[in-house]
Design a protein around this nucleic acid. Structure first.
Length: 574
DNA sequence: GCCGTTTTCGGCCCGACTGTTTTCAGTCG
């Protein structure tokens, strides 16, 4: 059975979770977490490494013991230590750890005292007011838990785009090797670059008699075949992702692609427009009466109703039809438009790579510049920089810049915005940097008014260039903090500062709709990787997807500027 | 459980905050 690095990492994290609830040695737990992280960040497939005889013990944080366990997982899907601990405790307890406010101790208490094993039981007990009776719990925590549980209802069963992308890539590569296959494309919300996808819709054109359908259902990761006919099959993968495959004719390819890309709201409007012109659009083509008019390409489908082709990311019925009719569709920003990245970390705080490694990786990706923005001292856990260490880093950047060709490192900081809206480092220090990226990492639960004023106050500081991850949300994990973003966007215009679109797949923050607001207000957006390793630099593609959903064009994005045009935009005069 | 040894044992990032307490455990990042 093919096993992906993310799957192995999930098993190791599960061991760590269970050990934590049991109260095991914290360093042992950390060893499992470190190994999981190493595998997630790895740019090679572990099963492939094993096949070619590469030693896993060469990887950081993986010794003899963990290497053997990983081999077990690849071979059998599990390993002894995991099975043991799954017997000792209900394995569903790990679900509870995902609720902010619940750590191992409280989860254990919930289980021991109330017999709570899963989210459903937790919800019930919280509603009945039984949580507050436990030592260490109170009314406030109970309310908080209830709120978190209710906020996440409805998002179950969806996959983050970057996670789905991992499964998609190998499945598509597998299908491509089927005889007779011509075109393969993933449609649906995946193609529209939505931040999460519920299932995958794959379209294939193939010569008649191609065995692609049989190959699809016999893919090694298929857990269950839910339906299988001549032109359509549905399966569920072992990772629980549902995948539809549709085989269509060349003649219908464009119509099917349009139809299955959606969104539903977009397609309804398109079909209405067709109806008004006496046409009918379905997944087979555009028809007048029963006469086929178009459908080979998506362009031909839109052209049949008098519209230019509309980019998939815009297809949400959020004004794209009006823009298309007026000839005002945006020329959406592309990954290749980015000239650099304005937010990356190094080993100095919680990154994995050195300054030099980050610089070389950025240069390899064709960047012109990379801004090093490590954490400030307030984030003690990350070993945040104080003025002295920041100064040392600045000196190191100067030395590196003197020897590097083709890439300029910019001096920056991801400085914490403190509760009162002040910044975690003095102006005198910030003034010596090329840019200041400021971020909220604490006090997420201030009232809307306080949170908004806190950020507005920070934006008034003389050295404030970019507001990092403006809403603070973690997709499917943590709700955004309560803040008046339109007001912050207006402030950004007034103060001539930029907003970040953090491209980390768990953040994608600014969201698409606020990208649109920023664009309307004339506020520049910086698409930043927030890279904590050299591989994270590749996350920019997810940020670009979100930016495109937010209608951003090249000129709306700060880091599409070449360095000489960028520098004046980073300078603040007040 | 890993790592790096003065090679088989000791160190491994820890400070701030919250809600619960009545002096601090648990969680977060």
């Amino acid at each position: 059975m093919p096993v992906h690095n993310v799957d192995i990492a999930a098993k190791l994290d599960e061991v760590a979770d269970l050990l934590e609830i049991e109260g095991a040695n914290p360093f042992r737990i950390r060893a499992y977490r470190n190994a999981a992280r190493t595998l997630r960040d790895l740019n090679r497939d572990v099963p492939t490494m094993l096949e070619s005889g590469e030693a896993l013990t060469e990887l950081p944080g993986i010794g003899k013991d963990l290497a053997a366990k990983i081999q077990d997982i690849v071979a059998t899907g599990t390993t002894g230590v995991l099975e043991e601990h799954r017997k000792a405790l209900p394995p569903t307890l790990t679900e509870l750890l995902k609720i902010p406010g619940l750590g191992p101790k409280r989860v254990k208490a919930l289980y021991r005292a109330l017999g709570i094993q899963r989210l459903q039981g937790l919800h019930q007990a919280a509603k009945e007011g039984r949580l507050r009776t436990l030592p260490g719990f109170g009314e406030k925590l109970e309310r908080h838990i209830l709120h978190e549980l209710e906020a996440r209802a409805g998002s179950e069963g969806r996959f983050k785009l970057a996670v789905a992308a991992q499964y998609v890539d190998s499945l598509v590569a597998y299908l491509k090797t089927s005889p007779g296959v011509k075109q393969i494309v993933v449609a649906g919300s995946y193609r529209r670059a939505k931040e999460t996808v519920g299932d995958l819709d794959i379209l294939v054109t193939a010569s008649s008699g191609s065995p692609v359908m049989d190959r699809f259902v016999s893919y090694g990761e298929v857990e269950e075949v839910l339906a299988k006919g001549n032109t359509r099959a549905t399966v569920r993968l072992t990772c629980k992702l549902q995948v539809d495959l549709r085989v269509v004719t060349d003649k219908s390819y464009g119509a099917a692609l349009q139809y299955f890309t959606g969104s539903k709201a977009h397609n309804i409007v398109l079909r209405q427009l067709a109806q008004q012109q006496g046409l009918k659009i379905n997944e087979y083509g555009v028809f007048r009466e029963d006469r086929y008019l178009a459908g080979k390409t998506e362009e031909s489908v839109y052209a049949a109703v008098g519209l230019p082709w509309i980019q998939p990311e815009l297809r949400e019925n959020r004004g794209e039809f009006e823009a298309a009719q007026a000839g005002r569709l945006p020329a959406l920003v592309e990954l290749s438009d980015l000239r650099g990245d304005l937010h990356a970390h190094t080993k100095a705080t919680d990154g994995r790579n050195s300054l030099k490694e980050m610089a070389l990786a950025a240069r390899n990706r064709g960047f012109e510049y990379l801004a090093i923005c490590d954490h400030s001292k307030r984030l003690a856990m990350t070993h945040g920089l104080d003025p002295k260490r920041l100064t040392e880093q600045m000196d190191e950047i100067d030395r590196l810049n003197a020897t590097l060709s083709g890439l300029t490192l910019l001096k920056g900081i991801e400085v914490d915005i403190l509760e009162d809206g002040s910044l975690d480092l003095p102006d005198e220090v910030l003034s010596r940097l090329d840019l200041v990226v400021a971020a909220v990492h604490s006090h997420f639960d201030l009232s809307r008014d306080k949170q908004t004023k806190r950020i507005l106050r920070a934006m008034d500081r003389p050295y404030f260039t970019i507001l990092a991850h403006p809403s603070g949300r973690l997709i499917q994990e943590r709700e955004p903090y309560d803040v008046d973003l339109p007001r912050i966007i207006r402030k950004a215009r007034e103060r001539q500062c930029a907003l970040e679109l953090n491209a980390h797949p768990e953040r994608l923050d600014l969201t698409d709709t606020y990208c649109q607001v920023a664009k309307e207000e004339g506020v520049l957006v910086s698409i930043n990787s927030d890279a904590h390793s050299i591989l994270d630099l590749d996350n920019l593609r997810f940020g670009v997807g979100q930016a495109r959903r937010g209608w951003l064009e090249k000129t709306d994005v700060l880091n599409t500027r070449p360095l000489n045009a960028l520098r004046p935009l980073l300078q603040r005069t007040m």
